[in-house]
Simulated scan of single mutants.
Amino acid sequence: MAMNILVTGGAGFIGSNFVHYMLKAHPDYNLIDLDLLTYAGNLHNFDDIKNESHHIFIHGDIRNAQLVDYLFKTYDFDAVVNFAAESHVDRSILHPEIFVQTNVEGTVNLLQTARKYGIKKYLQVSTDEVYGSLGKEGYFNEESPLAPNSPYSASKAAADLETRAFYETYGLNINITRTSNNYGPYQFPEKLIPLMVTNGMTGGNLPIYGDGENIRDWLYVEDHGRAIDLVLHQGKPGEIYNVGGHNEKTNNQIVDLIVENLGLSKDRIKYVKDRLGHDRRYAIDPSKIKRELGWEPTIMFDKGIIKTIDWYKEHEDWWKPLKSKAALK
């Protein structure tokens, strides 16, 4: 049965990859894409689907109650998938208020409107950063306490709690997904992998925070899209699902791979002052989504990182205009 889905933040990195995935997986679905087009939103992410009739782009803010209400009334949505968020930790340290406005107030506006119109499923896309920092061993699971350490992750944790509250208080059918670090096409070049690849290609230094031994669990973005698709259709009401790749790498390991692939000198690597609130390690246990919904990653890191580097090599026209906007150069 065809669905009408509101995708918020669909012009961003993970959102646009999800749109591409869903148009292939469910060609009869209608995706109405609401995005404010802040610095990280990019309509060029849709150049290859600009004539796709099942994808409708609308420029607007999830905090705009009048606009959001109009869209719900006009398109009779079956579901909402909320990617819309300010997401860069460095920027949250400089302007935490912006993150509260978009990530918390915007989410509550969507939840209020979804409840008003009796939406069948509301899916909040979140992050493993809400759990805080891990030691050298162990994994976060869905029962781990929330302990965010940056204004960004605190705003996402608050949005998650509001989402949970709408299930407990009003009975809204919600799910929350929390993902590990994503990588792949269309990622804004302030994030680690595209920053290093694009700096490597343009002659810049490769800046690494602190000692470079911070550890992240890396997941290819298309595998994340498949997980969201499964949760959207099969997730149990009120449940949280962690989505991880079981692929831990230090920042040093990631940069070394990129240096080797691009044939660069390691002298280009420059260690810079560590950022505030920089969590040491993230790692999440995705066994619940595997057990209940049958999901597991299909693109392993050794292949995914090559696919990603090759994409940036082949799409200089996409990322070169964005370099001046990146937080780190």
Rank of each mutant, 00 (worst) to 15 (best):
N4F: 03
A11W: 07
I14C: 06
S16Y: 03
H26V: 15
D28L: 09
D33P: 10
Y39E: 14
A40H: 15
F57A: 15
I58V: 10
H59C: 04
D61E: 07
D69M: 06
F77C: 02
V80T: 02
V81Q: 01
V89N: 00
L94H: 07
G106Y: 04
N109V: 04
G118K: 01
T127L: 09
G132H: 02
G135L: 00
G135Y: 02
S144G: 10
S155V: 11
L161H: 01
T163G: 02
T163K: 00
N173S: 09
I176N: 00
R178N: 06
Y186S: 03
P189C: 01
P189S: 11
T198R: 09
N199L: 01
T202A: 12
G204N: 15
Y209R: 05
G212P: 12
E213R: 11
I215L: 12
D217F: 06
W218V: 14
Q234E: 15
P237N: 06
G238D: 11
E239K: 13
N251T: 14
N251M: 15
K266C: 13
R268V: 10
K270L: 07
V272K: 01
V272W: 02
D274L: 08
R275K: 05
R281D: 13
A283Q: 11
K290T: 10
G294V: 02
E296F: 04
T298L: 00
I305T: 04
E316V: 04
E316D: 15
W318Y: 14
A326L: 13
A327G: 14
A327Q: 08
